[in-house]
């Protein structure tokens, strides 16, 4: 049998893993929450990884795109008839439209992509650490805007009443969709050129690579993918608030990416699965698990410490992440 091109092989391999985990979630209802959350985190981290892995620029700004996507979709799905009560600033035309979740998700992704295109046009003229700090400033700006844009976001309070339509199947479908997008990009001409610029900017420019343009394409796609993660998060929890998309999420997703391996899509997925499972396991223990010998319990806060330790161990022992910089592929 002729082996398929590597990105196709990786896509099929990862999709099989996702479907297998989804099946596990259905068979063992106790695990379904962990499965859904890990799929959602994986979507967010794949979005982050498309940018960080291919450009080599660490982004502290991607949580903004999850938020922009989540609110963008919520404007079209939220609160049956009560929408303008919660969001009095919404124009009548938006308030009157109820979109099914997949369509609303595409709208959220589109809004995030447009914002990314404008923000990236400015920020991506910076390089390396300067770009990372520029993206952090972007995170602060977007957060402040959304916190004070009461009529559209209900400001500092939560927006509740979103349809909780994201279950195992929807989360798996969303993740598989973004894996497809991310791997198509990985194998594309733009993906190759942006990685050449990551390796050596001067040499790539001298080969004719328009670095800024290729980075902007990469940034826009990664923002759209991250936005879908935000949409899924919102419609899994049923409510959103600005603080959900703040520094905790920024550093959690970055930790997932680093632990899994930042230069590969497989790394993004593995990091999200491993850390979500670890966190959920420890959270269960923090709440106490009854055993025949009494209640097994660990002090609160252990999950944060365990996450930090895991991050340190990976950085020291496997600086390229658990996956070691390789894409997963059954067909190789």
């Amino acid at each position: 049998m002729k082996s398929p091109p590597p990105t196709a092989g990786t896509f099929v391999s990862l999709a099989i893993v996702v479907i297998a985990l989804a099946g596990l979630g259905y068979l063992m209802p106790g695990l379904s929450r962990t499965v859904i959350e890990s799929f959602i985190y994986a979507t967010l981290v794949v979005g982050l990884g498309v940018f960080v892995g291919n450009t080599g620029i660490v982004s502290f700004g991607h949580a903004s795109f999850a938020m922009i996507g989540a609110y963008g979709a919520a404007w079209f799905t939220c609160c049956e008839g009560m929408r303008q009560v919660f969001l009095p600033g919404l124009p009548d035309i938006i308030a009157a439209i109820n979109l099914p979740l997949p369509v609303a998700a595409l709208v959220g992704m589109g809004i995030a992509a447009v914002v990314a295109m404008f923000a990236g046009a400015v920020l991506l003229r910076l390089n390396g650490v300067a770009a990372s700090i520029g993206l952090l400033s972007f995170l602060f700006m977007v957060k402040t805007i959304y916190e004070n844009w009461d009529g559209w976001t209900s400001g500092q309070s939560s927006l509740v009443g979103l349809p909780m339509e994201v279950g195992i199947a929807q989360a798996a479908a969303g993740l598989i969709f973004v894996l497809c997008l991310a791997l198509i990009y990985q194998g594309s001409a733009s993906g190759l050129l942006v990685r050449a610029a990551r390796e050596d900017e001067v040499a790539s420019r001298s080969a004719g690579v328009r670095v800024w343009r290729e980075r902007l394409i990469c940034f826009t796609l990664s923002a759209a993918i991250t936005a879908l993660g935000g949409v899924m998060f919102a419609h899994y929890l049923g409510s959103i608030s600005v603080v959900q998309f703040w520094l905790d999420l920024t550093f959690l997703t970055l930790a997932m990416l680093v632990v899994g391996g930042r230069n590969t899509i497989t790394g993004a997925v593995v990091g999200a699965l491993v850390i979500t499972s670890l966190r959920d396991g420890l959270r269960t223990l923090e709440n106490g698990v009854p055993t025949p010998f009494g209640i097994a319990e660990i002090p609160e806060g252990v999950q944060e410490i365990a996450l930090a330790l895991l991050l340190l161990v990976v950085l020291v022992a496997r600086p390229r992440g658990i996956t070691g910089g390789r894409e997963f592929n059954f067909f190789r």
């Binding site: 050449a196 050596d200 420019r205 001298s206 690579v209």
Partner: peptide, 29 residues
């Protein structure tokens, strides 16, 4: 990048190849 399109090629000092890419991808880029 515009000079590259106009026919000026630079081979920078220190063999600045794209290290974490294959030889083929270096040439394709």
């Amino acid at each position: 990048e515009r000079l590259a399109m106009a026919g000026v090629s630079l081979v920078p000092e220190g063999r600045r190849i794209f290290g974490r890419m294959t030889v083929q991808d270096n040439l394709i880029a």
